[in-house]
Structure formats: C-alpha cells, structure tokens
Design a protein around this nucleic acid. Structure first.
Length: 235
DNA sequence: GTTGAGCGTT
C-alpha cells in the first residue's frame, strides 16, 4: 500500500487521473497519498522519475476512483501548500500511453484518433504525429531550467523567434542521440582506460609551463642550481 | 546540495 506504481498501471479504465504540478522534488507518493486520500478513494499515486538521476520530476499523478472525488480534490488541494511549496492539482490530459484523456477519463486512444476528437480539444501546437517526438524531447531536455529563464525574456520580446525555433529544428534529432550516446560513451570510456584517462593532456600542460623564461625560483630546479648566492636553501 | 514548465510506470 506504500509502493505505488511498482506493479505498473493497475486499472485506468475506470479511474480518473489527476495531475499534481509544482510539488517539491522531495515529495513522494506516500506524502501525497494521505493528502489526496482524504478527499476521496485514491486508487494509485505515481510520481515519474528521471531515468538517469532517478529523482522526481516535480509532478505526480493521482488516480481517483470517482470523478466527483477527483474534482473535489482538485478544488481542495489545488493551491495547497505542500512541503513549503504550493502545488497545482488538475485533471490529466494525456495518459501513460499517450491516450487522450478528458476530465480525467480516457476518451479514446491515439491509435483511433481520426476526426472525432476535433470537437472541443484545440491543439494550437505542432501537427499530428509531431507531438510524440516533442514529448520525448521535453523529457530529456528538462533539467535545471536555466536556459529556459533566458527564453522567458525573449518570449516577451519576440514570440516568432521561439515559434520558429521549435517549428523547424533538424538538429533536435542530434540532441536526442547525444543524450543516449553520452551514457554509452561514459560507460565505454570507463571500460577502455580507467587508469590513464588524462595522461596525455597532463603531460602537455606540464611541459608548457616549463619553458618559462621568468619562472619563479621555487618552481624550477634549474634556478636553484644556478643561483650563485642564495640564502640557506635547505641543502 | 542545485532546478520549477509541464503530462506517467511493471
């Protein structure tokens, strides 16, 4: 009862998924379970974590058995301060398999989406099919959100720049590959030469400092040797 | 040790 999500998705067919945002990176499912369970029957609580770091991403998913309870939880827990941070509770829009969810309920699957979902779900971003790739990109790209802060400033000045940047980015594919490559390379390097990974650069740098005409006396042995008159230089 | 828009796993 403490380990949620360990056994995979239990049953989302009759459950309502709630998305909890703005939670602290230290908040766990066990911390949210009692909080959400007080407002209704919580079926499952899951907090996505990073594959590399293993830390939580700052948001969680809470599944309720009934929509009314979920709605109540959203109304009651939305804006509640948890662990010193104000959390945001709202209905999930997408499912674990990219299913389309409406008000927490799974309306239809992405494989069956054709022309029926265009009723009230406006998608102002990207085209059909591009969303999947963008989703993966976001997952990997999210980190310290340091660069994003700069984008905020640009966003206020020129939105077209931001749009164009996301609209056409053939290099993005390279970024994704680099992420996976980085892991493999790191492991590979350790296995290749664990003893002398920095031998070449170290030697080169040392030699570079030597040929100094004005090096200090305390560094160059030659200077000591050459000193004609020197105080007691510790034999 | 850090970070802060967003949508999920066996």
């Amino acid at each position: 009862m403490s380990h949620f999500g360990r056994s995979g998705p239990p049953d989302i067919r009759d459950t309502f998924s709630l998305l909890v945002l703005n939670i602290t990176f230290r908040t766990t499912a066990d911390d949210l379970f009692p909080l959400f369970d007080k407002y209704g029957k919580v079926v499952d609580v899951f907090i996505p974590r990073d594959r590399r770091t293993g830390e939580s991403r700052g948001f969680a998913f809470v599944r309720y058995k009934y929509a009314d309870e979920a709605q109540k939880a959203v109304d009651r827990l939305d804006g509640r301060v948890v662990d010193g941070r104000e959390i945001m509770v709202q209905f999930a829009k997408y499912g674990p398999n990219a299913e389309r969810i409406r008000d927490g309920r799974i309306v239809e699957s992405t494989s069956k989406i054709k022309s029926r979902s265009r009723s009230r779900s406006p998608r102002p971003k990207y085209r059909d099919g591009y969303r999947d790739r963008d989703r993966d990109y976001r997952r990997r790209s999210r980190s310290r959100s340091r660069d994003r802060s700069e984008q905020d400033g640009y966003r206020g000045r020129d939105k077209d720049y931001h749009r164009r940047s996301v609209s056409c980015s053939p290099d993005r594919r390279k970024d994704r590959g680099r992420g996976y490559d980085e892991e493999r390379r790191s492991r590979s390097r350790s296995h290749g030469s664990p003893n002398s990974p920095r031998s070449p650069p170290r030697k080169a740098r040392l030699r570079d400092e030597s040929p100094n005409g004005h090096n200090d006396n305390k560094h160059s042995p030659t200077s000591k040797s050459i000193s004609p008159h020197d105080e007691p230089v510790d034999s």
